[in-house]
Nucleic acid binder design. Structure first.
Lengths: 197, 197
DNA sequence: GCGTCTTCTAGAAAATCACTCCAGAAATTC
DNA sequence: GAATTTCTGGAGTGATTTTCTAGAAGACGC
């Protein structure tokens, strides 16, 4: 790690951290270029040098945390001996992530991540693709082994993650009375019923 | 219908229609005040007179279509004799709506509707509340009659709509190969398994 | 140590938007 | 037919993102 690169990493990390902090404190409304520049202490020029645009910065931040979340999910799948245990583990891991990282979870489930998280460069897409295809592979194995119902892969993925995302959104939006602990206790069994063979 | 009101309705409808057209053609990026003014032929002042802000216009548009969608869902629930038939009907109605009204569905599933659709006035909220509470009531009856599993209502709602929304989003984003007809054929049975008693 | 090239920082200026404001037209009311 | 309310029009304002360019800091060969 050369000094120059070290400096560069520090600067972009300063920006990413500041962006998350601003988002948590001020919401997506307050997440402006000037606010990030102010709280990070980094200059406007540096921001645009490293990320090209505000969307680029937000996209990189979203990607960083989406990668963590997908990492938790794939780890849960990998460590499970059965399809049933894998589904349950992934559901619990998702909800645990939302509880432990409320700020980042809020970002990932906010409109910002949808818009700016997409249309990323190659590196971003590829790292994600690796995760996603690992999930797809795990599902295919479950179907082939007869543990999961013989459905199209996207449908199985939607049946598993759809309810989890819905519950997470409700909890994060705050207007609903969803207890994530309760959801983590009840959802795995119900979701399993919808995808088991 | 007096002449003035007639003119007023025409003007606001011109704006709503133009906004949807602009969104479908140019995406949420292109949905600007000037674009709406240009394509509608209505003046800037009129836009702000009728809707107060761009968010107000988008919110009204989202509300108009969300109301239609919820109407389809509640109609499906009302016309069903059993809980199982109701779930299946609602799922099919949702997916049919997405196929028949791709533009509006894209709007409803886009970040715009999330942000601007909220924080509306009393009239908007109330009309929606009526729909939502009708759904809640239907679910409660299913639980009480022993047809649905004794779960918290938000969880049941998430188990039913979560996968449907996930599939709809995939289809609308275009990057995925989800066949909505196939989904409408397969999902009802799988979702039913996750919520039946 | 010394010039060169690339990378990075800095912030002023430009461009784009949503929104305000108010003058006046059109419709309504009495 | 005058007064009042509602609606239309668009120039102007302020905020925000982005561009531009001048130059500082580091990498590298010599």
């Amino acid at each position: 790690m050369s000094p120059k690169q070290h400096r560069g990493e520090v600067t972009s990390d300063l920006l990413l951290d500041a962006a998350l902090r601003v988002f948590v404190e001020s919401g997506e409304q307050g997440l402006t270029v000037s606010a990030v520049v102010r709280t990070s202490g980094v200059s406007l020029g540096s921001l645009y040098h490293h990320f090209g645009s505000l969307d680029g910065l937000i996209g990189a931040l979203s990607h960083r945390w989406l990668d963590r979340l997908l990492g938790e999910l794939t780890k849960a799948l990998r460590n499970a001996g059965t399809a049933r245990a894998g589904i349950a583990g992934a559901v619990e891991a998702y909800l645990a992530f939302v509880q432990e990282h409320r700020g980042p979870a809020l970002l990932l489930h906010s409109p910002l991540a949808d818009r700016k998280g997409m249309a990323r460069g190659r590196e971003f897409r590829d790292a994600q693709e690796a995760r996603v295809s690992e999930v797809a592979l795990w599902i295919r194995q479950g179907v082939d082994s007869g543990e999961l119902a013989p459905l199209p892969l996207p449908l199985i993925e939607s049946l598993v993650l759809g309810p989890v995302v819905a519950v997470a959104r409700r909890s994060l939006s705050g207007i609903d009375d969803v207890d994530l602990d309760e959801a983590a206790r009840l959802l795995p069994e119900q979701i399993w019923r919808s995808v088991r063979a």
